[in-house]
Simulated assay, not measured.
Amino acid sequence: MSLSAPCPSPALSSSRAERGAAARGPAVRGPAAQVAQTCDVDEQAALLQGWNQRYEQLSAGSFEGRVTSLHLGPIQAWREFSSQALHQTGALRAGQLAIGLPSSIPGNTMFCNRSCSEGHAIVFSGDGPFEFVSPGGLEIIDFVVDQGSLDPYLTACEREQLQAQLAQPHLRPVSAHERWRLPILLSDMQQCLADTTPDTLPPQQLDEMASDVLAAIAAVLRDGVGSEADEQLSYQRRAHIVSMARERVVATGADGSLTVEDLCQALAVSRRALQYSFQEVLGISPQSYLRAVRLNGARRAIKQGSSVSDAALAWGFWHFGRFAQEYKALFAELPSHTCKRYR
């Protein structure tokens, strides 16, 4: 199902890893990463495969460019640097969508005749061409996915609201939290590849990686989507929503696969209503609550004899260093210390 198709409620049986596997594709054994240096704008444009892109240099001086690319099945990611101001034109393949996030805005930046600021995400979508004027010294990350692969990470209501918005390339306001989530993910993915060879990464680790990328892209797209009615719920109604959500989490069982999207569909509430309810009743977001459930599950698995890495993967944590940080933040000890105490 794509964002342009009718939007019935999805089944709640697929796990995070299964959703990531569906996006990653069965033929991919591991992500491939490359770093390329260029001294010509045409060489730089050619490195972004599938964009049908053309660069024109606007500022004077020799050109220096760099593209770090990472492919995880149909998910493609780039970190691109250009030393000179450029006029970029192009179009994505049909059915694809890309999110661009500049690290900073060092000068005049225009996208499709609109001024771009650091509070914007650049959305390359729809069938129309795009036009991008970028300043010298710009570094930007781009993630490209098949648009339909985002469906499991959006509610039916969100897909309906986004359908018209994604018909054309555009700038999208984005919160600081969501703005930095994708760059951090890209850095974590690159670190995983630096620590090991791609073909030795377990398939489940790759699937969780893909799932986190798709969830982060969906979060950028839906940032700000909602209605004012979500803010008018009484405390009793919000407490009831939280109670039903916790019952759903318990009933799902011990794999941590339940997502915020699943809760919204199961409880027939919007994401914003769920967010406000958890924040008022428990003082945390539903995403933080589900992450705490997964961390607690991993802790129990370690106490019962699982290795730290097996427990992390079983509960959806593919970056072991970040898992250790989040584990320590919640439990005031590293997972390795828990492991030693219960052996």
Rank of each mutant, 00 (worst) to 15 (best):
M1G: 15
S2K: 03
S2D: 14
S4F: 11
P8L: 05
P10L: 10
P10I: 03
L12M: 09
S15I: 02
R19I: 08
A21E: 09
A22Q: 12
G25M: 05
P31K: 01
A32Y: 10
C39S: 15
Q44V: 06
A46N: 10
A46R: 07
Q49K: 12
Y55S: 10
E56W: 11
Q57Y: 10
S59G: 12
A60Q: 12
G61M: 05
T68H: 13
S69I: 06
H71W: 07
I75A: 00
S83Q: 03
S83G: 08
L86N: 01
Q88K: 08
L92V: 05
R93L: 13
A94K: 09
A94V: 11
Q96C: 14
I99C: 08
G100Y: 01
I105Y: 01
C112K: 01
R114P: 09
C116W: 03
S125M: 04
S125L: 04
D127Q: 14
D127I: 10
P129H: 03
E131D: 13
P135Y: 04
G136T: 04
G137M: 07
V145M: 05
D146N: 12
D146G: 12
D146W: 04
L150G: 04
L150T: 02
L150S: 03
T155R: 00
C157W: 02
C157E: 08
E160I: 01
A164Y: 03
Q168H: 12
H170T: 07
S175N: 10
P183Y: 05
I184S: 15
S187F: 07
D188C: 12
A194K: 09
T196H: 12
T197H: 14
T197V: 15
T197C: 13
P198R: 01
Q205L: 12
A210K: 01
L214V: 05
A215Y: 07
V225H: 00
G226P: 10
A229D: 12
Y235Q: 11
R237S: 12
A239C: 08
A239Y: 06
H240C: 10
A245E: 03
R246L: 14
E247Q: 15
V249M: 08
G253L: 06
S257W: 02
E261C: 15
L263F: 09
C264E: 03
A266K: 03
S270N: 06
S270R: 02
S277G: 10
S277I: 01
F278Y: 12
F278Q: 00
Q279M: 11
E280I: 05
V281F: 05
I284C: 15
Q287F: 09
S288G: 13
S288R: 12
Y289G: 04
L290R: 00
L290V: 06
A292S: 14
R294C: 11
L295F: 08
N296L: 09
R300F: 08
R300Y: 09
K303I: 14
Q304Y: 11
S306D: 14
S307E: 10
V308D: 01
A311E: 03
A312E: 02
L313T: 02
A314S: 15
G316N: 02
F317P: 05
R322V: 09
Y327V: 02
A329H: 13
F331I: 04
H337T: 14
H337P: 03
